[in-house]
Design a protein around this nucleic acid. Structure first.
Length: 130
DNA sequence: TTTCTCACA
DNA sequence: TGTGAGGA
């Protein structure tokens, strides 16, 4: 079933299609790209080509924005995800889903400008070697 | 027609 | 972010 993953990563959708799929404006979609949140391919006359994976990411970005995060905060979330993947490869220490959820939640609060300070929860005792 | 970049309200 | 200009 890996073929689907591959096709998910194939960038063939023009910005107009992505606009309809995500109900975002071309302006927003390009802006998010400039903020390094998405990395559409380029081809044919400098036109952007998005993949289904990009659309998924755009949809996620909308959710994060709804949570009150800003561009920088969202980028941190994705950086975090990338590091999680790297850590899994290194097998340094398996992060449980709860650990991950805890870390992401902490990122949300920091990036969102501590909109929900509700008693500074003690940092997770997890050391991230990176 | 659609998308691109750049600039300004 | 929205919108318009000027091109491809």
């Amino acid at each position: 079933m890996r073929g689907k993953e591959l096709r998910r990563s194939l960038s063939v959708l023009p910005i107009g299609t992505v606009m309809k799929l995500t109900s975002l404006t071309a302006r927003q979609i390009r802006y998010y790209e400039s903020q390094k949140l998405i990395f559409p391919q380029r081809s044919d006359g400098n036109r952007r080509l998005y993949s289904l994976a990009d659309v998924d990411r755009l949809l996620e970005i909308k959710d994060y924005l709804d949570d009150g995060l800003n561009m920088a905060g969202i980028r941190e979330v994705y950086d975090q995800k990338q590091r999680e993947s790297e850590q899994r490869k290194n097998q340094d220490h398996q992060l449980t889903d709860d650990d991950v959820r805890k870390i992401l939640h902490d990122e949300f609060l920091q990036a969102g400008g501590l909109k929900t300070p509700s008693a500074q929860q003690p940092q997770a005792p997890l050391q991230k070697p990176l």
